[in-house]
């Protein structure tokens, strides 16, 4: 990888947006690598989490927004929990996903992940919590991965982990209000 750095890039809008979203500057990171050390999905990433932060420090936002890493991140928060500088890495990843969608820089290779995210949110909005059976059905229809993970699905069904009939939570109205307040409708359209 090869690039030039200039002060315009360092001041670029993308880094500023991330800073605003997470209310923290990536400059606090001193590159100890503990986030990458503990990341359970590190092996699926093209660049490790600490390098994502490093590239933000150097103003290389395009490379970050185009990476698989931000989509592979499972938001488990191990990184944020263990960070010695208390940098909110998982939140930063979330902010980067949002930015990638907004700027259209999101990588096409991870479209299934984006699809899953969408279906997950739809299901949550509808029932107040996720309904696994319908989520799986919609995801499979749209992604056309009809037979993936079928074995695991059957096992889960017989263990009572997947309910065929959805259960709606009491405060679903309030949850929908939260979705609207966060600008859900516009973002999905984008």
């Amino acid at each position: 990888m090869r690039f030039s750095i200039d002060s315009e890039q360092l001041e670029s809008g993308a880094v500023k947006r991330v800073e605003e979203m997470i209310q923290q500057s990536p400059s606090v990171c001193y590159q100890c690598g503990k986030c990458s050390a503990g990341c359970p999905v590190h092996y699926l990433m093209d660049i490790p989490p600490n390098v994502v932060i490093r590239l933000l420090q150097m103003g290389q936002t395009d490379r970050v927004l185009e990476s698989r890493t931000i989509w592979v991140c499972a938001s488990c928060n191990t990184c944020s929990t263990r960070c010695p500088k208390e940098f909110k890495i998982a939140e930063c990843m979330d902010a980067l996903r949002e930015l990638a969608l907004a700027t259209g820089k999101d990588t096409p290779s991870e479209k299934d992940i984006k699809l899953f995210h969408r279906e997950f949110l739809k299901s949550t909005r509808r029932f107040g919590k996720v309904h696994e059976a319908s989520l799986a059905a919609f995801y499979k229809l749209k992604s056309r991965h009809f037979f993936a993970d079928v074995g695991a699905g059957i096992k889960m069904f017989f263990k009572g982990k997947i309910r065929p009939i959805p259960h709606r939570v009491k405060g679903v109205r309030e949850i929908r209000q939260m979705f609207e307040a966060a600008g859900y409708g516009q973002k999905v359209e984008q």
């Binding site: 090869r2 200039d6 390098v51 290389q60």
Partner: peptide, 12 residues
């Protein structure tokens, strides 16, 4: 170079 991001770096 920036060994933290595995890259060659140029600065003006």
């Amino acid at each position: 170079a920036d060994t933290l991001s595995d890259s060659q770096v140029q600065i003006r």
